[in-house]
Simulated scan of single mutants.
Amino acid sequence: MPTAARLVGAVVFFGVGWAAALQVLTTVPEGTPATFFPVTIAMIGLWQGWSVAGANAGRGRSMAVANGLRTSIQIAALGLIVFALRTMFERSMSLRYDGFGEAVVAAMDLFIEYFFQSLIAPVWGVLLVGGVIGGLICEGAARRWR
């Protein structure tokens, strides 16, 4: 059911995802195609803001902070999974893997590699601070528009 808190959560976490994706782009090597990266991460933020932060709003400030952090961590995890699988599928199209098992292990290796790459940039600072602020904004929207 659409609520004001869900709408606000979707918009706020779209922005958090976009800002975090722009921080990631500062660490990407020159010439790497990343055309849809910010939009994809922002859309994951929109989805998570609607379904997690907005749906759980209205339970108090401490829960709002926890839900905001949960939403931001889920944005990061889903973004890592999506782009690790994307890279694995691109590599498998050029017949780089001998079998299914090797491709799955490579996807896990890419997930870990991308995770460590995200630790270099201030991505997690943006996600954590944005998550706390976004959770509190969703809580305010839930209280204001019941």
Rank of each mutant, 00 (worst) to 15 (best):
I133D: 01
G54M: 10
V132N: 03
I44H: 02
V8N: 07
L127V: 04
I81H: 03
F100H: 11
E90R: 14
R146P: 13
G134Q: 06
E113T: 09
T40K: 07
V16E: 09
T71G: 03
T26H: 13
I120H: 12
G15Q: 10
V129E: 04
D98K: 12
L128R: 01
A121V: 04
M88H: 00
S92A: 15
V105K: 13
A84F: 00
R144C: 04
P29F: 05
G68E: 06
G54I: 10
L22E: 14
L78C: 08
A21K: 01
V52L: 13
F89S: 06
L119N: 08
R146L: 12
L22F: 10
M88I: 02
G68K: 05
L110N: 09
S51I: 12
Q23V: 12
P2E: 11
D109S: 12
P122H: 02
I112D: 05
R59S: 13
A121N: 08
F14I: 06
P33Q: 07
W145L: 09
A141L: 08
T27L: 13
A5D: 03
I41A: 09
T27R: 12
T71P: 05
Q117S: 08
G45V: 09
L7A: 14
R143D: 13
A106W: 03
A4C: 06
G125P: 00
L128P: 00
S118I: 01
V24L: 14
R6G: 05
T32A: 13
V8A: 14
A53L: 03
S72G: 15
A84R: 00
E90I: 14
R6M: 12
L95C: 04
R144M: 09
R146I: 11
A34E: 05
S118C: 06
L22K: 11
L127G: 05
L7I: 15
L7Y: 07
W18D: 04
G31L: 05
Q48P: 00
I112H: 06
L119H: 02
E102H: 04
Q23E: 14
E30F: 11
D98I: 10
T71H: 03
G79A: 13
W145D: 06
M1F: 11
F83V: 01
G131W: 06
G60S: 10
L7S: 09
A142M: 08
V24H: 08
A142F: 07
P38F: 11
A42P: 10
G140H: 02
A19G: 04
G79Y: 07
A142Y: 07
G125K: 02
V24P: 00
A34C: 02
V52P: 01
M1G: 11
R96F: 13
F36P: 00
G125H: 02
V132W: 05
V52T: 13
